[in-house]
């Protein structure tokens, strides 16, 4: 039914190139009644840590021009509850399941990956490497290429499944970071996480978010992440999954032409839970209209591209 838009990305065969993004998609079944999961290739679960994390003080969300700033703070139920209560509920899900892993140390990432390796309902793992590393004075894991390679290699050793690494957009050299993750053994890179941001309530003279800083998502960051996807694709040719402001088929097609094999949809769900189905319908129409053999043929096929 979806033959023309079936894709292979990061070691997974996806029925459609639409992936629900970590954080917005909960534990995979919250949206069942509003989002058509037949239009979804994979759902990336909320980031999970070894122990439960309570998350940040509210308010946790603010509307921004063409975007949303969130500071949920990776609230999650922890590994045990995920395995015991959340994963069994996903048995009937019509799409692939990707578990997203967060941590404060290399050991924590490795322990979580190792435990999830045994879970049959988890088809792949995605590492969120934007978390602060307590062993490196709180510096984000992705800020140090060498450290990132070691972290990914540790996880690769134990994961036993396809491994995706979700990069942060605000780094000095995205290609160096991407190469480090690939050297460590990543099967695909998700590009990219939210952009650090804040909002101020001028009447109250306070930051809107309880955590003051948050991460900007939505169409506001799409042109930024589009370039990152393109740069990394040109330099590495790796399997990329684009993330950032995908709210319709045109945005999805743009990312695919820039080099992504699949796209993640997150913030758009809030405004339009019908977005995944609309994107799939639009992409099918696009592939048919332009008479391509299939969507995969379009990956990185920009005309007049930089040499």
């Amino acid at each position: 039914m979806n033959a023309e838009i079936k894709v292979e990305a990061g070691g997974l065969e996806l029925a459609t190139p639409v992936v629900l993004a970590s954080g917005c998609a909960g534990y995979g079944d919250e949206w069942l009644e509003l989002v058509d999961l037949d239009a979804v290739g994979a759902v990336v679960l909320k980031g999970v840590s070894l122990e439960p994390w309570p998350g940040n003080a509210p308010p946790r969300i603010a509307e921004a021009p063409a975007g949303v700033i969130n500071a949920v703070g990776l609230e999650n139920v922890g590994l045990d509850t995920l395995v015991r209560e959340k994963l069994p509920a996903l048995d009937g899900l019509p799409c692939k399941v990707v578990a997203n892993v967060v941590g404060r140390s290399r050991d924590e990432y490795r322990d979580v990956c190792s435990a999830l390796a045994a879970e049959r309902r988890v088809d792949a793992l995605e590492l969120n490497v934007s978390c602060p590393n307590v062993e490196a004075r709180g510096m984000a894991f992705c800020a140090d290429a060498e450290g990132l390679r070691d972290l990914v290699a540790d996880c690769r050793d134990v994961a036993g499944k396809p491994l995706w690494v979700k990069l942060a957009p605000m780094v000095t050299d995205i290609v160096a970071v991407a190469r480090a993750a690939l050297d460590g053994g990543a099967d695909a890179l998700t590009i990219a996480n939210t952009v650090p941001a804040m909002a101020v309530n001028v009447e109250a003279r306070r930051a809107v978010l309880g955590n003051v800083y948050g991460g900007l998502s939505g169409p506001a960051i799409r042109p930024i992440n589009l370039r990152l996807v393109h740069v990394v694709y040109k330099e590495t040719g790796a399997d990329l999954i684009a993330s950032g402001g995908v709210d319709g088929w045109r945005a999805a097609a743009a990312y695919i032409l820039a080099g992504a094999r699949a796209v993640q949809v997150g913030t758009a769900l809030f405004d339009n839970p019908g977005a995944p189905a609309e994107i799939v319908a639009g992409l099918k129409e696009y592939v048919k209209r332009e008479m391509f053999d299939g969507l995969s043929f379009l990956v990185g096929k920009l005309r007049g591209d930089r040499k």
Binding site: C24, E30, K46, L269
Partner: peptide, 24 residues
């Protein structure tokens, strides 16, 4: 509360509770 999804997925509309301490 400020809210985004309505279905319990995004955890934006956090209400602080006493038990477990520090949780929402």
């Amino acid at each position: 509360e400020r809210m985004a999804c309505g279905v319990g997925a995004c955890r934006s509309c956090a209400v602080p509770v006493r038990e477990p301490a520090g949780s929402y």
